[in-house]
Design a protein around this nucleic acid. Structure first.
Length: 826
RNA sequence: GGGCCGGUAGUCUAGCGGCUAGGACGUCGCCCUCACGCGGCGAAGAUCACUGGUUCAAAUCCGGUCCGGCCCA
């Protein structure tokens, strides 16, 4: 046993162990081990967006605790780490960083710029994860932007296409008529501008009456599919269900009830066109209205526009307004301010267009998703309904195609001549159809030899929604099912609807099997003010700063303890500081124990005379082990940590160590066997404390273990020691009760000393304890050594009868009289 | 508007059918006790949001009201 240095230098200790653990390779999953049970964690590959944030810290701490705990429980733990690289976020940042637009440079060059930025961000995040001391098996590291990962995404698509889950369909998207491309919501700038509101008469069917509708987009009249009014609007609700005639095209459309119509805007009667704006999209979806496509991809009126075909939007508006006026249907116009979307690249007004997209049939799986969600163990349980409710609320299938560059290509081609769809074969992938032709001689349908590669790419969730299988070794390892389904999928509460859901539908569709057996949910990290942490609210704290300042072990305690698993937790400096103080306390008591156990040899232990307080502590340690193990099994990290900290600080340090000091200091008075008993108890209990804490605060426990225990226990790392078993034979309720009485007596006497403003080591000449009955008297008498030592009593009298001294709070039948002052005889 | 969660001392948090409602921070006393002042010993501070109900018993279960939070429309 080596003495521990006086100072606890967490920076040095944490860095040292992070390095050594990696060198020792103790977190490697052993792919060849067929004996130990496996436990696989489906680490969600994060989107590299810069430095690690406190939400990541919370997330990673949770499942690192699980990984470490499971290893100690004897599992062969797979704890992989990947990076979810693709996506619009990176594309936009690259454009900003280099002051370019993606279409300004060749696609290959743009992708290169994206992957460079991703690498930089991965470096930053990885540094944070390493600093947090996560027990990741870095030999598993992967990037979804690598062609080898494309291969898996593309293969999964091919298999799902063959199973009938993938199809092409049309879906409204933001469209820039100038760039002739779909753009994402994030690429649309909104600005206010002055527009005109046109009041137009729409005749009711079979009636001379008409309704006056107000619209800012009369050019969309040919695409009008309904007219809506608020059902509470008494002016118009009598018309609901009737038909109305759309002017110009003379088409009959229904008048429908829609609560979102604002009766005070315009006339309170609104036309729904496909699609004048985003509201129209919602209404059409909601009421399942028919769709009349009006625009071409370059923003001109198509054949559905009748006589206006070929006109631009502005030309069509002018022409239609003129025709309406001529027909006497235009009642008036007025100026309004309206919000319009512009392409953030070219500033052209965006339109909403229906465009061919790829979809995955997810709604057919909803019942299976619900059933499967019920088979999964959720931590906490109520999170299950988030997934089920989400799945049930979906109105349409998952759009898996995007019109972007930095993403996995969709492995299909179209025959230039007949349009036949050519799906890549399994052994063609990874492949980019924009760069390469399909590996066939001719179109199987028309024998043409010219093909057009799919330009669309996959939604980034297509990459990240197969991780459970990929982590297990699919499709390359024969034995991948050994690790599938994953034992645990960890996730933030905010991405249950995406991550947990997409994993579910994809794996169910691919393998008819659930992707994960359990799902561990973490809440959001809030600022100290209780609001969601964000830079704009100025309540943001950077994870690297927190880690540098307080160390990983203190930060991990905050994450584990900030609140119940799944609940949102605020980042509070005092919590982290309390964690730091606990570590100092643990360090100090360990250093103290190492001194007290200087000559102690663990092997010659059984000849000791265990004192009541020794038995008391040993029994309480078992109760603690049980409570902590139960909490760990249920992923109640806050309970586990709270229990260990309170036990360590208050039961172990404040009560036990204080009480046995005298036994250890003065064996000549109390006897060598009693000293040995205290040493043995300290040795055993501190070790268990370190073990129970090891998953939560791995660095400090390792450092203490190596100095105090490695020599006698022999494990290479405390992380490789078996989790303490609950030893029922050490549990002794009677010993606990009797010990409680002794501890209580000691505190009450100390309390009296405090009240009398005496120092705690003020001697007591004579302490008379009225125990009230024989068994209490016996308990105190048996613990005499520690009572006398801890309280500096010269003369102790324990009487079984009742007295009228100062009573104990918990044991009011027991009371005592203390006579202070130096004894004459010593 | 929908789904979920929550309202416990000045602040934060645990407990979720039955012991004097734990703990942390803060506050106030005391102790320079030979591991630790990033400490020790104590003290004050809570009608457990409001309101009905179930129960021998409710912070804990059920209904309603009010107020927050997260996610989604």
């Amino acid at each position: 046993m080596q003495p521990l240095p006086k100072e606890y230098n967490f920076i040095e200790i944490e860095r040292k162990w992070q390095q050594r653990w990696e060198e020792m390779g103790i977190y490697r999953y052993d792919w060849s081990d067929m004996k130990r049970p496996v436990f696989s964690i489906d680490t969600p590959p994060p989107y590299p967006s810069g430095e690690l944030h406190m939400g990541n810290v919370l997330n990673w701490t949770y499942f690192d605790i699980v990984a470490r705990y499971k290893r100690m429980r004897g599992y062969n733990v797979l704890f992989p780490q990947g990076w979810d690289c693709h996506g619009l976020g990176i594309e936009i940042q690259v454009e900003k960083l280099h002051n370019i637009r993606k279409r300004d440079v060749p696609p290959e060059q743009f992708r290169k710029l994206c992957s460079e930025l991703v690498e930089k961000y991965i470096g930053m995040m990885k540094e944070g994860i390493l600093k947090l001391g996560c027990s990741i098996d870095w030999t598993t590291e992967y990037r979804t932007m690598d062609p080898d990962y494309w291969r898996r995404t593309q293969l999964s698509f091919i298999l799902l296409y063959r199973k009938g889950f993938m199809y092409q369909g049309t879906h409204p998207v933001n469209w820039c008529p100038r760039c002739e491309t779909a753009i994402a919501d994030a690429e649309v700038d909104y600005e206010k501008r002055e527009g005109t509101l046109y009041y137009i008469r729409y005749p009711l069917e079979n009636s001379t009456e008409y309704l006056l509708i107000a619209t800012s987009r009369p050019e969309f009249i040919p695409a009008c599919v309904a007219v809506e009014v608020n059902p509470k609007d008494e002016r118009f609700n009598k018309y609901i269900g009737k038909n109305i005639v759309v002017p110009i095209v003379n088409r009959k459309v229904p008048i429908i009830a829609e609560e979102t119509v604002d009766p005070t805007f315009g006339t309170g009667v609104v036309q729904i066109c496909t699609y004048g704006d985003k509201e129209d999209v919602k209404t059409v979806m909601k009421h399942k209205l028919p769709i009349v496509t009006l625009l071409t991809e370059n923003g001109r009126i198509n054949e559905n526009g009748g006589k206006y075909v070929g006109l631009t939007i502005n030309q069509a508006r002018a022409a239609i307004v003129e025709d309406l006026a001529a027909a006497g249907l235009l009642e008036k116009t007025e100026k309004i301010t309206q919000e319009v979307g512009r392409c953030d690249r070219c500033k052209a007004h965006i339109e909403i267009l229906e465009r061919k997209q790829w979809f995955m049939k997810t709604r057919v799986l909803t019942d299976v998703v619900e059933k499967t969600a019920n088979e999964v163990v959720w931590y906490p349980d109520y999170m299950k309904s988030r997934l089920v409710d989400w799945a049930k609320s979906l109105d349409w299938d998952w759009v898996i195609s995007r019109q972007r560059l930095f993403a996995t290509p969709i492995p299909v081609w179209y025959c230039k001549k007949c349009g036949e769809l050519i799906l890549a074969k399994e052994d063609w992938v990874p492949i980019d159809p924009k760069m390469e032709n399909p590996r066939i001689d001719k179109c199987p349908k028309c024998d043409s030899t010219e093909f057009i590669g799919e330009r669309d790419v996959f939604d980034t969730w297509m990459d990240s929604s197969i991780t459970c299988a990929v982590h297990a070794g699919w499709p390359d390892r024969q034995d991948w099912k050994r690790l599938f389904p994953a034992d645990m999928h960890p996730s933030g509460i905010d991405i249950i609807r995406t991550w947990a859901y997409y994993l579910m539908v994809r794996h169910l569709a691919l393998f008819n099997e659930k992707p994960y057996k359990s799902c561990l949910i973490n809440g959001m990290v809030l600022g100290a003010d209780g609001r969601k942490m964000s830079k704009s609210l100025k309540n943001y704290v950077a994870a690297p700063d927190v880690l540098n300042k307080n160390g990983a072990d203190a930060t991990r305690q905050w994450a584990a303890c900030g609140g119940a698993t799944g609940s949102d937790i605020p980042y509070r400096t005092p919590d982290v500081e309390y964690g730091r103080r606990f570590l100092v306390k643990l360090w100090n008591v360990s250093a103290f124990v190492s001194k007290l156990l200087h000559n102690y040899v663990p092997s010659d232990i059984e000849k000791v005379e265990l004192q009541p307080l020794d038995k008391w502590l040993l029994s309480k340690t078992e109760s603690l082990t049980k409570k902590v193990t139960d909490a760990m099994e249920k992923c109640q990290f806050n309970i586990a940590v709270e229990e260990i900290r309170n036990f360590t600080w208050h039961v172990f340090c404040d009560a036990y160590v204080e009480a046995v000091k005298d036994r250890l200091y003065r064996p000549e008075v109390h006897g060598e066997t009693k000293k040995l008993a205290a040493q043995q108890t300290l040795y055993k209990v501190l070790f268990k404390i370190l073990q129970l804490l090891a998953p939560v605060v791995p660095h400090v426990t390792e450092e203490i273990y190596q100095a105090l225990y490695a020599g006698s226990k022999g494990y290479k790392s405390i992380q490789l020691s078996p989790w303490p078993e609950y030893l029922e034979e050490w549990v002794d309720e009677n010993a606990e009760k009797r010990g409680d009485l002794v501890v209580e007596l000691i505190s009450e006497v100390r309390r009296e000393k405090a009240e009398r403003r005496l120092s705690l080591n003020a001697p007591i000449r004579h302490l008379i304890v009225y125990a009230g009955d024989n068994s209490a008297a016996e308990a105190i008498e048996e613990a005499k050594t520690d009572v006398v030592g801890a309280l500096k009593v010269n003369n102790l009298t324990v009487l079984p009868q009742s007295g009228s001294g100062r009573p104990l709070i918990q044991f009011s039948a027991v009371n005592f009289i203390a006579e202070y002052g130096e004894s004459t005889k010593k």
